[in-house]
Each structure stands twice: as C-alpha cells, then as structure tokens.
Amino acid sequence: MAGQQMQDPPPLVSVLIPARNAANTLWETLSSLRAQSFKDFAVVLVDDASSDDTRAIGEHFVEYFPKGRFQILQGPGKGISAALNLGLAAIQSPLVARLDADDLSEPLRLERQLRIMDRNPDWLLCGTEVSVIDADGQVIDQMECPKSSVEIRKRLYEKCCLHHPTIMFRRDIVTAVGGYRSQFDGAEDYDLYLRLLEVGKIGALNERLVRYRLHPGQVTASIGRPYRLVADMALLAAIARFHGEEEPAFTKETLATDLGHALRAEIKQRGFTFLSPKVARHVAHRIKKSNAGMERLKGLLFAQNAKARNYKEAAKALLV
C-alpha cells in the first residue's frame, strides 16, 4: 500500500541468551553463532542487570548481523525466568533456540535442529547431547540424553534429562503454556519440559551440538545443590496437574519442609503409581540433606515397598 513500508518477515529461528556478568565468556559464545552454517536467524541477548562489560560486548556484535537481527534487552535482574520471558516476548520467530552466555554452539547446531523439527512437526521441543568443556574451553567429558519421544517422556517423569542450553522449541506453544515460571528458578527448564509433555512430544538429536561449560559459578554447582529440591517439587507439581489437582505450594525459604509434606501426601494418596520407588527414595535423600524430618517418610517408603513385595527398595528405604 502506498505510504507504508513492507516489514521484513521474522527469521525462522531466534537464539535467546540470558546473560548476567558474562563478559569473560560472552565473546566466545557469540562468535560461535557467527560461525553457524544456517544464517536465517536472529539473536536476542538479555543483559540481566550486569555490572561488567556484558552489554558492551553484545553491542560490538550488532554490526556483524543484518539490521534488526541482533537485539539487546535490559533485563529486570529478577532471575533467569524473568529474563527468559522478557526475551520471549520480543521474539517473533516461530522457533527459539536457547543458549547460555558461557556455552558454545557447534557450527551445524541450528541447521541440524531446524531439519529435525521440520521432519517432526509434532515435536514441541528438541534437545541435543553436549560436549563438556572446562573454564579454558577444553573438552573434558560428554553428556548424553534419551532420544525418542517415548523414552524422554519416561525419563522426564523421573528426572531432568535434557540440557537447557541445547533446546530448540516452538515459541507459540511455550508461550501458550505460560513460558518460564520464576518460582522454579534453578529448575525452570525441567518445569517447562514437564508442562510441555502435557500437550505434545519432546525429542532429541543423537549429536553433540553444544559445548557446555563447567565452572564454579553456575547454579548446579551451588553448595547444597538447592536446585535439586526445586526440581523435585516441579515433578510433584506435574503429578498433581496430571490428576487435576492443585500444585503443592512452596517457598524458597521453606522448600525442604514443603517438599517433605508434598512427597508424604503423594505417597499416601497414590503410592508409587506415578512416582517410582527409586525416585521417591532419591527425593527422600535430598529432603534429609536439608534437615527435614524423615522418620514418618521412611516408614511410608518401607511400608509401600514391602506391600508391593519390592523388598530391595524396602530395605533401601530404611537407610534413608
């Protein structure tokens, strides 16, 4: 129409990167995106209240991408879920690839994931395996994940088995299920996967397409690993939703106690129908580490397993 400019269509995929004080690694991370074999993508970098040169590094890379294909947002500094949701709200691409500001994408990553998502239109999300690197970028290990949607569904109802910086997902579906939830920060990815399972399939590629950096400052290295307790609550919340019940309430300050109450209620109400004995025992171990009362829970674990003639798990329950 005369007098109106035609707006360019959004790229097929946008890479969403939350970053807080990531100046030491962000340059390498963004350089890995410049080396992608697939070029029709944008980058949304959420500078989440950094006090170092994170934003300045991001601004340096703007000129290396087509106009409008590299966006820097100022995050609220209220945690990773808030930062991710801010980025999601700005993205128009049908597909979103996650990457952390200290990890690296292999050159074929976007190409491979786009191809498998196109071949599997019923997949809502696709992960990959990872190469583990140290602070200096040297490969020191590798981490696998289940591949088929059937195996992933089974494993996710036991523990988080997908690596967050590897995922690519359909933006409209993630938005429809509510995006990321801040109360599950630390296990926000696991909570999202469990909610996506309620509306569709999740798959993964049998390729190491991301280099995942291990260093002392990351959430999973926190003393006491509190994210484990949040992940356990995410699982119990998913089971409650499956039965049309309200999710168990919790706060970060009373999480161990709240988790203990939720687990005892789950075992009393449904036994191990949706919570395997092994998972229940592992949850109990983590509750114990947080100094929550355990005697009643041990009795329930033992009684339920003995009743099911699962004597091996019954014996292990006594050792919790």
Score class of each variant (00 low, 15 high):
D53P: 00
D172Q: 15
L259Q: 05
D258L: 04
S50Q: 09
L88H: 02
N21R: 09
E144P: 01
L114K: 07
E246S: 15
I267R: 01
E63W: 03
N85T: 10
T273F: 00
I140D: 03
D53N: 11
A292C: 05
T166N: 09
S93T: 03
T257F: 13
I57Y: 06
L114V: 09
L73V: 09
S81D: 06
E59Y: 02
L319H: 09
V96G: 01
V210R: 03
E246T: 08
E253W: 03
P216S: 14
L209N: 09
K289G: 05
P18T: 04
M1T: 11
G271H: 05
I116W: 07
E106L: 15
V283K: 00
Q183I: 09
T54A: 03
R171M: 08
H285N: 08
L209K: 00
N24V: 08
H285R: 12
R98P: 00
G178V: 08
M294P: 01
T251H: 05
Q92N: 11
H215G: 05
R208V: 00
S222G: 04
Q5V: 12
D141W: 11
Q92L: 10
A97C: 13
Y212M: 11
L12T: 12
P11T: 15
C160A: 08
L95E: 02
R20F: 10
E63P: 00
R181P: 01
S149Q: 12
S14E: 12
F61I: 12
L114M: 12
H164G: 00
H282R: 14
I173G: 00
R171F: 06
L301C: 12
V96D: 01
L297D: 07
R296G: 13
A303P: 00
R69Q: 13
S290G: 15
L229T: 07
F41L: 06
E63C: 02
I140L: 03
L209T: 09
Q92E: 15
G203N: 04
K289P: 02
R112I: 09
G217I: 00
A19K: 04
A303D: 15
Q113I: 11
E313I: 00
F250C: 00
Y193M: 09
R115N: 13
A135K: 14
T254V: 06
Y227I: 01
E28F: 07
E253L: 06
D191R: 12
E158R: 14
K67R: 13
Y180S: 04
Q7D: 13
